[in-house]
């Protein structure tokens, strides 16, 4: 699993790629928690680019939930976008698509968190 992030126009983007399984979930959780804390302090939004994410299990899914809760607690606008078919299926089956904003692409995510594309 590969995680990078960048910040531009008051928006932090985490790019997550590879396999988000039990083993990778801990590193992703650290990344997302520190990004939420930094975004809250700076008044930034946080969006997660999942275009390269090939696989997610329930262990990975719960990190998205932890991240969404932390973002809500810190008043950080939060959205995920560009889910691959397998990841999208997991979000839909679990009902996470109803509690986390999932957008098709970056433009949609930026609009959702109140930033112009």
């Amino acid at each position: 699993m590969n995680i990078t992030n960048d910040t531009d126009n008051k928006t932090t983007t985490i790019h997550v790629a590879g396999r988000l399984d039990f083993e990778a979930a801990g590193a992703f959780q650290k990344e997302i928690e520190s990004a939420v804390a930094a975004a809250a302090a700076a008044g930034n939004a946080l969006i997660i680019d999942c275009a390269g994410l090939e696989y997610v299990s329930s262990a990975g899914l719960r990190v998205f939930l932890v991240g969404a809760r932390a973002a809500k607690g810190g008043s950080v606008p939060f959205a995920v976008y560009a889910l691959t078919a397998a990841v999208k299926e997991v979000f839909e089956v679990s009902g996470f698509g109803r509690i986390i904003d999932v957008l098709n692409d970056r433009a949609g995510a930026l609009e959702k968190v109140g930033r112009t594309a």
Binding site: S57, S58, R62, L65, A68, V93, I99
Partner: peptide, 15 residues
Amino acid sequence: AAMEDRPIGGLGIYL
């Protein structure tokens, strides 16, 4: 369930 009410975990077998 709403986000606040979600237990963390328990989803695997459901999936």
